[in-house]
Nucleic acid binder design. Structure first.
Lengths: 141, 141
DNA sequence: CTTGACCTTAAAGTTGGCTTAAAGGTTATC
DNA sequence: GATAACCTTTAAGCCAACTTTAAGGTCAAG
């Protein structure tokens, strides 16, 4: 079986060598074989595993969540658990979208009102929108 | 003029004393008067300023951005600058919403497909959605 | 006059996800 | 055989926005 060095793996995956060692410490990457000189040698499919990590990060999964998913894969575990993790993530994402959408709505409305003229004192709509009973519009979080 | 201690201010604003000292160090709160024993004494409207900070944080503004807004208010500065700060923030918020919406779309579609039955190996839709060319669907960020 | 609740400062710790540095061992090339 | 480009480990640093700890000084109550 062909193996590659950590530098080659870094090159192929686009993940820095030190980050790869960090993932090993954090149990996202399994500890690979070593040469006589104690150098890491990775199987080629380590590239796919790293890319899975990179992609999951782009999707907004944390390393903790990614580790959970990887453990399920490694253990050939129950798909229902993977579904649960994804459902929790989906819920969190929807909450974030809700929150941001409310902020977006008020902020864009405020910016339409705001001519951007005159001094700040007495009635800059932006400042007032923030200062004014923000908790009525924004109760969660 | 009536003044209050840092503990009273913390009580009234819901912001911990140490956080208030931190805001002072970070130039979000002005350094208040001191008693002979070197205790801080705040004017009552310090409560409103702290609440402005709290609200702005709830809106997703960072302390750096809040400092900018406060400086404008303190200097009675140009409203156009406040508008620019808010516009930049709005842009960032819209980018975040876009990103999250794409993730939400794929993840919810995936979860509908996924029965949650069977083992992980060969074709768990969740794992495949993450592993599969995630960068084609998700180019930004 | 002592207990305890408050206040002071500076410094270190927290979280997440790394990066950078320090101090060294190995391997490939000239 | 020397130089450079790898590799190794551990430890420290970074970001934001604090919190916690340490080691004190002050003040009101009993």
């Amino acid at each position: 079986m062909q193996t590659i060095s950590i530098g080659e793996l870094a090159e192929l995956s686009g993940v820095a060598s030190q980050a790869i060692r960090y993932y090993e410490k954090e149990k996202l990457m399994p500890a690979p074989q070593r040469t006589d000189a104690n150098y890491r040698r990775y199987p080629v499919d380590a590239v796919a595993r790293l890319q899975f990590i990179v992609h999951a990060k782009q999707w907004g999964f944390t390393l903790d969540e990614i580790r959970e998913l990887l453990i399920l894969q490694d253990a050939n575990g129950d798909r229902a658990q993977a579904k649960r993790i994804a459902e929790e993530k989906l819920h969190k994402i929807r909450e974030q979208i809700k929150h941001l959408s409310r902020v977006e709505a008020v902020l864009s409305r405020t910016l339409i009102e705001c001519t951007g003229e005159g001094p700040m004192q007495e009635g800059c709509p932006i400042v007032e929108a923030i200062a004014d009973k923000a908790d009525e519009r924004e109760r969660n979080h």
